[in-house]
Write a protein that binds this DNA or RNA. Structure first.
Length: 451
RNA sequence: GUGAUUGUAGCUCAGUUGGUUAGAGCGUCGGAUUGUGGUUCCGAAGGUCACGGGUUCGAGCCCCGCCUUUCACCCCA
């Protein structure tokens, strides 16, 4: 039998975990600094919690868990014969793997509303699963690192999250661009031309402007069923360019008659004004083609792109005004972001942006020449650890050549050799694996050299 | 879900128009070297050619199916 893992999943070797932990620890530390508190939720949720929250596409991508036991007991032969998987699945599956961290969080907020003080700031770092077809930067199991604030309408939250994003990527030394949009502006555009359900087609078409040109975009919109008048109305929006200020001015003109649209512009402007005073390292750009998560976002929408590596967005987020509504709790607005840890990991790998000093694990390997030395070695590693030095003792009595190769392959910077000579003279021999330098002396001097 | 693409030793890959016993490098193990790794030399182990069927005197190579890899679309972190 060949050892393999399911499609779209990954194993991580020790050196890879060191890199991933560097990412997780960085994000965690920033979350903590911004006052978010950690929670966890189960890997699986009731399907009733998950279904219908991510649109039709999302429902298809949910991993469903077979009921335990005789899961076909309640399915009649007639029903089985129909082969209608989508209907039948409800009969033998009532749990699914979580698809993101936001919906389980909404469930969590409603369920524990009596134990939570609003505004509630939580962070959550856990894997999610999607039955997608894997490709570059897309996995079926990946970690999201979410920070959300629920129970506050203030745009200060948006500003704080943008600052947090800037903080994280600055620490990770990644060049990124924050793209910003507002769902209300998109609604305004739709309102303007009376085509509420065409908003996705419109954003997709705008997105292609730079690639295929105005004429082709207009042609595509025509094919999608927009009237010539409607296309003419939104043409200034398709060709929108320049800095954020110019874009906002143009939008104000075009959307002047739409109150929702103007509200979105106002929000965007306010956020940008606040952020301008914070001197962030990351550039922020208004991007009307950002329509991500259209299913539940109601205000700000944001996305982060790596400037050095071509991969999908590495962070996304936005405001959702009524996510808890479906769980029976109305009028709670939230805003949140989600770092895609696995994509950030891929980007960092490609750029090799890991600080070396944070990557190695064991500092010292103790090499015994024989059994007697092994006993002495046990005492030595114990004392090393007491001094805060990560140390291990080679567990088998084998040739020193082999023990040194172990240290070498594992990138252990120091070894301590213990043989008959060392025991007789009460000394230790320290070897620097990088330089090959060796020093024999008493325990305290050797320890001092390592520290 | 749609369209391509990949699969040969633990890893990376050769393998001619179908032709005898399928190769290399790296890694592993042993030795040169019983107290010295990362350099060198010698040797060894390691294969259901993804899997199942078919064509053929003969298939790693051709055909069909299936799984898998990677990529694009859709959607997304």
């Amino acid at each position: 039998m060949k050892p393999t893992i399911p499609k779209g999943t990954r194993d991580f070797l020790p050196n890879e975990m060191a890199k991933r932990n560097y990412i997780f620890n960085t994000i965690k530390e920033v979350f903590r600094l911004y006052g978010f508190n950690q929670i966890e939720t189960p890997a699986m949720e009731n399907l009733s919690t998950l279904m219908g929250k991510y649109g039709e596409e999302g429902d298809k991508l949910l991993f469903k868990i077979l009921n335990s036991g005789d899961y076909l007991a309640n399915v009649s032969a007639d029903e089985l014969v129909t082969k209608e998987s989508n209907k039948l699945v409800n009969k033998f599956s009532e749990k699914g793997l979580r698809y993101d961290l936001t919906v389980p969080f909404a469930r969590f907020v409603v369920q524990y509303r009596d134990k939570i003080t609003f505004p509630f700031k939580r962070y959550q770092i856990q894997p999610v699963w999607r039955a997608d077809r894997p490709q570059k930067g897309r996995y079926r199991e990946f970690f999201q690192c979410d920070a959300d604030i629920v129970g506050s309408d203030s745009l200060v939250n948006e500003v704080e999250l943008i600052q947090l994003i800037d903080d994280v990527f600055t620490r990770l030394q990644l060049n990124v661009l924050i793209k910003l949009n507002n769902r209300k502006i998109l609604s305004g555009i739709a309102e303007l031309i009376g085509e509420h359900d065409k908003i996705v087609d419109i954003t997709v078409a705008i997105d292609k402007y730079e690639k295929i040109g105005l004429e082709n975009v207009q042609k595509e919109l025509l094919e999608k069923g927009l009237t010539l008048h409607a296309i003419e109305t939104i043409t200034p929006i398709i060709t929108l360019s320049g800095d954020n200020g110019t874009k906002l001015e143009m939008l104000k003109k075009v959307l002047a008659t739409s109150s929702v649209g103007m509200e979105g512009i106002q929000e965007l402007q306010t956020v940008l004004n606040y952020v301008a005073g914070l001197n962030l390292k990351t550039a922020i750009e208004i991007d009307l083609t950002l329509a991500r998560g259209l299913n539940y976002y109601t205000g700000a929408i944001l996305e982060v792109k790596s400037l050095d590596v071509q991969i999908g967005s590495i962070t996304g987020g936005g405001r959702y005004d009524n996510l808890t509504g479906v769980f029976g709790m109305q009028g709670v607005s939230g805003v949140g972001i989600s770092f895609g840890a696995d994509r950030i990991y891929d980007v960092l790998n490609q750029l090799e942006l890991y600080p070396k000093e944070k990557m190695n694990q064991t500092n010292v390997l103790v090499l015994p020449f024989g059994e007697k030395e092994q006993v002495y070695g046990l005492e030595i590693v114990k004392e090393l650890r007491k001094n805060g030095i990560a140390a291990e003792l080679y567990p088998d009595v084998v040739k020193i050549k082999k023990q040194l190769a172990y240290a070498d392959n594992n990138g252990i910077p120091y070894v301590i050799l213990i043989g008959e000579n060392e025991i007789n003279t009460q000394t230790l021999t320290l070897k620097n694996m990088l330089t090959g330098e060796q020093y024999t002396g008493d325990k305290d001097t050797v320890f001092a050299k390592i520290l």
